[in-house]
């Protein structure tokens, strides 16, 4: 661990802007800047990923690192910044980790198998607003990996469950629901994520408020798929 002093920080600055200031300073001194992931800086792309003072995305709830502002810290504080820690998220450099395991889980079944074109009119199947809203709530996951980072078991169950439930709730997604949940969980396990022990740290630290209900739904989906799917392998 290295400690850097940072000067000239305004309370209105975002956390990442503070790191920008530090990096500019390091550069001017001829040092290499600290690598960290970030992109949209408006809390939606899911690329920023820092473990700040012992918390995924820092001390504020419902906030990504990029939306965290320095007014939540005091002048003179020493702030600890770590990368996400998980076997499935190897560190590339400094604070940058490899989260492609989450992409591979999506590739294992996080889709509805329709080709472009030849689909029915969008209003052919009405979907109750309550269901559509719930599916949307699950779909807001930004795949940042904070759930994994916060989980004592480094489990990606909250992330996985968000996708599984979103698609399982919608009539379009029900068609493949069984194979989807079987394959996605198998991939989750193969990537080396831990198991869920219903601690709830994931949902508490999730910047977009994905609910634990999704994990319950994932479990339901998994049980019913395993009991009734055609897959005997």
């Amino acid at each position: 661990m290295v400690t850097y002093p940072v000067k000239g920080i305004s309370p209105d600055m975002s956390f990442l802007e503070m790191l920008d200031v530090l990096n500019e300073d390091l550069l001017l001194r001829g040092d290499e800047p600290i690598a960290f992931d970030h992109d949209c800086r408006e809390g939606i792309c899911g690329m920023c990923s820092l473990y700040i003072n012992g918390r995924a995305h820092g001390p504020e709830r419902g906030t990504t690192t990029c939306q965290l502002h320095m007014r939540h810290f005091k002048d003179g504080d020493t702030i600890t910044i770590e990368p996400w820690r998980a076997a499935a998220f190897p560190v590339h450099r400094d604070l940058v980790v490899d989260r492609s395991a989450m992409d591979r889980i999506q590739q294992a079944g996080g889709y509805i198998s329709v080709n472009t074109g030849g689909v029915p009119d969008a209003n052919t199947i009405p979907i109750p607003k309550t269901i559509a809203d719930k599916a949307f709530d699950a779909a807001t996951c930004i795949q940042c990996g904070a759930c994994v980072a916060a989980c004592k078991n480094a489990s990606a169950m909250l992330f996985l469950s968000a996708k599984v439930s979103q698609l399982a709730m919608l009539p379009q997604g029900k068609v493949e629901a069984k194979t989807r949940v079987e394959n996605m969980l198998a991939q989750h396990d193969a990537e080396g994520f831990g198991a869920c022990s219903n601690i709830g740290a994931c949902a508490a630290e999730c910047p977009v408020g994905i609910s634990l209900d999704n994990i319950a739904m994932l479990n339901r989906e998994y049980i019913s798929a395993k009991a009734t799917s055609e897959n005997v392998a």
Binding site: G117, P120, N123, P126, K129, A132, D133, F136, Q172
Partner: peptide, 22 residues
């Protein structure tokens, strides 16, 4: 018009009315 059909088929959760339509 085809885009909306395509997205709904993919499971994009667009806002809906109480009657279930978009």
């Amino acid at each position: 018009v085809d885009i909306i059909d395509q997205c709904v088929a993919q499971g994009v959760p667009f806002a809906r009315e109480y009657g279930g339509l978009l």
